[in-house]
């Protein structure tokens, strides 16, 4: 069961050409819109134009949790907040939470890859999906929910906890 044959079974050569095109575009965009990333790239002596092959990704500096913390909450966003339609936050078990944002297009892409995932796991449009991931700031609940709807399945948005009710519904 393959949700998006065109992309999921794309021959490696075509896939790698697509990856390079998308990577180059992304690096140009990030360099132009996020001063922090631009400064890090300048520090490493690399410009967007230096990304000529997929292997050139190795020239770029890494990003760590520490970078995200330093830019809390929205410092690494590439778009103004009016284009952000949703935020989530990581649990913050090791410090302050990390805030992440999504545009409309991001939410659509996420729903699609989650639909692909559910499909790969054996779910189809005529199935019922009992979504026991927590809903809220955690990405699990809404992420799986949108994917299940994109797939066309019936979602039971039970969220986490209350095991007895979970079993009753199953």
């Amino acid at each position: 069961m393959i949700y998006n044959e065109e992309y999921e079974t794309m021959p490696r050569e075509a896939l790698e050409a697509l990856q390079l095109k998308r990577l180059q575009k992304q690096i140009v965009r990030v360099y132009a819109t996020v001063p922090y990333y631009a400064a890090k790239m300048d520090g490493a002596g690399v410009k967007p134009d230096d990304i000529k092959t997929l292997a050139d990704i190795q020239k770029l500096p890494f990003t760590t949790k520490e970078d995200l913390r330093k830019n809390y909450p929205f410092g690494l966003f590439t778009v103004p907040m009016d284009e952000v339609v949703r935020i989530h936050a990581s649990s913050g078990t090791t410090g302050q939470p990390t805030v992440v944002g999504y545009t409309k297009k991001d939410i659509k892409m996420w729903a699609e890859i989650m639909a692909r995932s559910l499909n790969a796991a054996g779910a189809q449009a005529n199935d019922t999906i009992h979504n026991a991931y927590g809903y809220g700031l955690f990405t699990g609940g809404l992420g799986a929910h949108y994917g299940a709807e994109e797939l066309g399945a019936t979602v039971v948005p039970i969220s986490g906890g209350n095991s007895k009710r979970q079993i009753t519904l199953m």
Binding site: V30, L60, K65
Partner: peptide, 19 residues
């Protein structure tokens, strides 16, 4: 494992170290 998001708009990450 390290990831770069090549299509994400609002919050892309470049070579994010996942641990």
């Amino acid at each position: 494992l390290v990831f770069t998001t090549i299509t994400k708009e609002a919050f892309p990450v470049i070579r994010y170290r996942t641990k």
